[in-house]
C-alpha cells in the first residue's frame, strides 16, 4: 500500500483548473517520479500534499490517515518533508543553524534520537559551509541544504521539487546515488524533476502530469515508450531511438 496517496484531487484557481481529479500514490522504499511540462500542476500538487493549499475536492492520505484538512506543520510532524522549487532557506541563519532548527522542530515525542545536524551537512557534502549564512550559498548548494534540512525532521515521505536544477552533471550523479541510498533506507520519495537522465536513473515508478490531468503512469521504460507522453512532454525525437534514453534535456521544451 502506498504510504502517501492522493485521491481525485481537484484544484481551481478562479476559472483555471490547476489539477483535475488527480490520483497517485508514493510507496516507501523507492523513488516515484512526477514529470510534466511547466505549468502542468506539479508544484500545486506539492502544495496540496504538504497542506499549503487546500484542494477544492479530493483527499490526501498519509499512511492511510486522511490529512486533507490538517495544517502543514501537523503533516510535517506526521513525517512529511519537502524542498522548494524556488529556494526557501532561512537566509539569515547559517547552514548549520538551518539544519539544527529543523531537527528541533520535530516533536520530542517522535521516535528515536534527533539527527546530528553536522552529520546531515556531511551527508549532502556541505560540511565546509556549516557557518556560512544560507543566503550567501549558490543555488546548487542551497538545494542540498534544503535537502539536509528536510532530512533533519526525519521524514517518512520526502517531496523534492526540482532538486537537480542549478547542479552540474557530476553533482547530479552524486545526488542520484544519495536518492538511491535514502530510498533503500525506507523513505518514500516523490521527485519532481526536468532532468530526464536523473529521472530515468532513479525512479522506480513515474507519473506524467499535463494540464492538471494525469496522462500516464507506470515504470520508466513504459512511460518513455508511451506515444502520448512523447507527444505532450518528451517531444517526438527524430532519428533517435527512444529506447536509448536520449529523450532528455534537449527536447524538454514543447
Amino acid at each position: 500500500m502506498a504510504l502517501l496517496e492522493i485521491r481525485d484531487v481537484t484544484v481551481r484557481y478562479g476559472g483555471h483548473v490547476a489539477l483535475r481529479e488527480v490520483t497517485l500514490g508514493v510507496e516507501a522504499g523507492r523513488v516515484t517520479g512526477l514529470i510534466g511540462p511547466n505549468g502542468a500542476g506539479k508544484t500545486t500538487l506539492f502544495n496540496v500534499l504538504t497542506g499549503l493549499l487546500t484542494p477544492g475536492a479530493g483527499r490526501v492520505l498519509l499512511d492511510g490517515e486522511d490529512v486533507t484538512r490538517l495544517a502543514p506543520y501537523r503533516r510535517a510532524r506526521r513525517g512529511m518533508a519537502r524542498t522548494f522549487q524556488i529556494l526557501e532557506l532561512f537566509g539569515q541563519l547559517t547552514a548549520l543553524e538551518n539544519v539544527a532548527l529543523a531537527t528541533r522542530l520535530r516533536r520530542r515525542t517522535a521516535a528515536g534520537e534527533r539527527p546530528d545536524p553536522g552529520a546531515l551537512l556531511e551527508r549532502v557534502g556541505l560540511s565546509a559551509f556549516a557557518d556560512r549564512r544560507a543566503d550567501t550559498l549558490p543555488t546548487g548548494l542551497g538545494r542540498r541544504l534544503e535537502l539536509a534540512r528536510a532530512l533533519a525532521v526525519r521524514p517518512r515521505v520526502l517531496l523534492l521539487d526540482e532538486p537537480a536544477s542549478g547542479q552540474d552533471p557530476d553533482e547530479t550523479a552524486a545526488f542520484a546515488d544519495l536518492l538511491g541510498e535514502l530510498a533503500d533506507e525506507g523513505l518514500a520519495i516523490l521527485l519532481v524533476e526536468h532532468d530526464m537522465t536523473l529521472v530515468m536513473r532513479v525512479c522506480a515508478h513515474l507519473y506524467v502530469l499535463d494540464f492538471g490531468t494525469l496522462m500516464a503512469e507506470g515504470d520508466p521504460a513504459s512511460v518513455r515508450a508511451d506515444p502520448r507522453v512523447r507527444e505532450a512532454y518528451l517531444g517526438t525525437s527524430t532519428g533517435t531511438d527512444p529506447g536509448t534514453g536520449t529523450a532528455g534535456a534537449g527536447t524538454l521544451a514543447r
Binding site: 504538504t50 497542506g51 526557501e88
Partner: peptide, 21 residues
C-alpha cells in the same frame, strides 16, 4: 530566536518542517 528568523524568512518552509507558525 531562530524560530522567529525562520518565520520572517519563510513561513511556508517553517510550517512544512513542522513549526506551528
Amino acid at each position: 530566536g531562530q524560530r522567529l528568523i525562520a518565520v520572517k524568512e519563510s513561513p511556508a518552509a517553517a510550517a512544512t518542517l513542522g513549526m506551528n507558525v
